[in-house]
Write a protein that binds this DNA or RNA. Sequence first.
RNA 1: GCGGGUGUAGCUCAGUGGUCAGAGUGCCUGCCUGUCACGCAGGAAGCCGCGGGUUCAAGUCCCGUCAUCCGCGCCA
Length: 611
Amino acid sequence: MSTWKRTVSCGVISLPEVGQEVVLNGWVHRQRDFGDLVFIDLRDRTGLIQVVVDASVTPGLVALANSIRSEYVLSVKGTVRQRREGTHNANLFTGEIEIEASSIDVLNTAKTLPFVLADEENMRLVDETLRVKYRYLDLRRPKMYQMLELRHKATKQIRDYMSTQGFLEIETPIFTKSTPEGARDYLVPYRLDPGMFYALPQSPQQYKQLLMVAGCERYFQIARCFRDESQRADRLPEFTQLDVEMSFVDQEDVLNIIEGMTIDVVSALSKKQLPTPFPRLTYDESMRRYGNDKPDIRFGLELIDLEEVASQAEFSVFQQALAEGGQVKAVRYPGGASLSRREVDDLQKFCKEFGAKGLATVSVTSVEPVEVKSAIAKFLTEEQMARLLTLSEAAAGDLICIIADPKPKTVANVLSRLRNEIGSRCGLRDPNVLAFCLVTDFPLVQWDEETGKWDAEHHPFTMPHESHLAYFDTDPGKIRAQCYDLVCNGQESGSGSIRIHRPDIQSRVFQLLGIDDERQKERFGHILEAFSYGAPPHGGFATGIDRLIMNLLDEPNIREVIAFPKVGFGYDPLMDSPSSVDAEQLKELGLAIIPHKKKATTETETATEAE
RNA sequence: GCGGGUGUAGCUCAGUGGUCAGAGUGCCUGCCUGUCACGCAGGAAGCCGCGGGUUCAAGUCCCGUCAUCCGCGCCA
């Protein structure tokens, strides 16, 4: 029988255990060495505890204690005792007790680490790539294993909730089929028939619909998804979603599950305010009021339509925008009148980054009587300016930010970003609130100006509202679909739809998307055939697990909530992947590599580039 | 593909074209019986990301390049 095995974990011992003989296992968090008196903070997954080696008690142990360094792996045998008066540490759960060591086993030594785990303040600044390279060390930090624990609890909570609602967790393949529509696929070469490829799933979309045809009725999965697209702070090429599909349901049934699951998980794991029921708004309403389909509803400052004033003002920028079918809209910046000239210029620059041609501002000194500073004041009569202030619900000290553009999309995009920026600056985006909402009735398709084709807004199996079927021939852009997003604090956190189960409607959608019979058969033949054997009405959704954890922890960086994340461009500094492979492997797969132009200096080589 | 930031000791950072290779921390050595970011003394530690250029002189200025972070495009 081994004597080094733990009898109890470090972080859970307190006064009631005083007097007990214990064995602890863990890592040396810090060591404080006074020569004949040594303190060792021992750390395991549950927390920290202070171990004391005292020469007057165990003279034979001091030399060993002196030699112990950070991150050594120890087994400590000793007695739990109350700390002396005045030496309690209120920062530790175990701060009222300590372990008087009777023996210490060094189970393993450790080299000096590339960063100091115990210095949490500095760890927040350490280069991320270095932390990811040494992730197995970084994960030793309390903050990190607390994150892992929360993530575990969240997925467990989800599984429990879905189970109680009658859902079955079913795994679907990772090697699947490329679907060129949508995001770029990750491809896996097929050795037995060179030139053929599997693709990694962008989501288990088709499999879950096939499970409905199979009669599963209620499916869910905590599913890994892969999309070969550029990263953002909240986006990695490899991520996890809760994937759900249900049969014999309408949109309302699905929304109730989304909402119920979200409330169940968030309220179990977070103390943040969670306004319920989740407000619902249509896509059109969201675009009108907030300028995007993922509104941050923690604050107001809704967009203001100034067409009424702009159409009368003798200002060519406004007139032209409206004449070309555009819009003139604004957002109010509370207290923005105090911005310096330079700060207003920066706002203008901000707007131009997102495609605005300019930004008109009205700095409000007084509303009654009307007193403003504005470059556009000379184009407006006093009545028009007064009306503008009324429409904007302006108060003294505000800055009204106006965007005019022939493209409503540009107006919406710029103002929604400006609104969020103003919300941040004014401290209106309360971090203690998780403001979920459901956005419904998305357009079925969107016109792609580059390709000159209609594109599916969600995916080709999304069911249009039946009352909109007539628009297929007249104005496809007007078709609204049974399609919905879950939004949290201005971020898309999930989406789904009711699927088409009627072949006649499916073929009209394919026709609209310009996917001809041959291509349908090639890409979707399997699922269309499946639908022909009796597909039940069905629908579902998927929500991002990573983003959920980010929201629970107030963490803006997705890599902070993943055990082993990739860094920029999908690089993994820990494994040093992606990596080259043996020529033999390539040969077996029938692959030949065209050298990348990167380091080639000659100008002719670009001719071979595909993109 | 594009725009912006960063790159100097293991880590985090400072550094006016001219005694300029610096600080804090970590590391090593010594002393220390109540610390908990222990303290004190001493020491080691550098391709100033890489390659060109300007200059009498470059960590500092210019050009290029690489890496990384943030954003845009992209992400049915």
